[in-house]
Amino acid sequence: MIGFYYFLSLILVVVSLYYFIVARSYVKRLISVNILGSGVFLFFVATAKNTTMENPDPVPHALVLTGIVVAVSATAIAVALILYLNKEER
């Protein structure tokens, strides 16, 4: 079962990486880099079940939570900059 989640995260990472490279617009790039992040987070959370113990390891969850916070704040700055750029253009 855990292999399925690894596979899913691999697909997310590869597809979003492809779109990150080919996308020309800033918004598309922002979305693709966010999806890439989700793929990485999914992978990290899935590794929590990778132990012989009955319960999943809580540490990856805590780390992913931190990662999500960082990704959200980076996205906020990116959106602010894109909006500023559009206002300048008009």
């Binding site: 990472v13 990150f20 800033y26 790039r29 922002l30 880099v33 890439l36 992040g37 990485v40 992978f43 990290f44 590794t47 540490v59 990856p60 780390l63 990662g67 960082v70 990704a71 980076a74 700055i77 990116a78 900059l81 894109i82 500023y84 750029l85 300048e88 253009e89």
Partner: peptide, 29 residues
């Protein structure tokens, strides 16, 4: 405009790099 564009490109690449780094950290962990 030039500065904002440079900053955006830098931002995207650095998020990408951070995600790669996190992926490596996840694998190590």
């Amino acid at each position: 405009r030039k500065a904002i564009k440079a900053s955006l490109n830098y931002l995207f690449l650095s998020i990408l790099a951070s995600m790669f780094y996190l992926l490596g950290v996840a694998m190590l962990y």
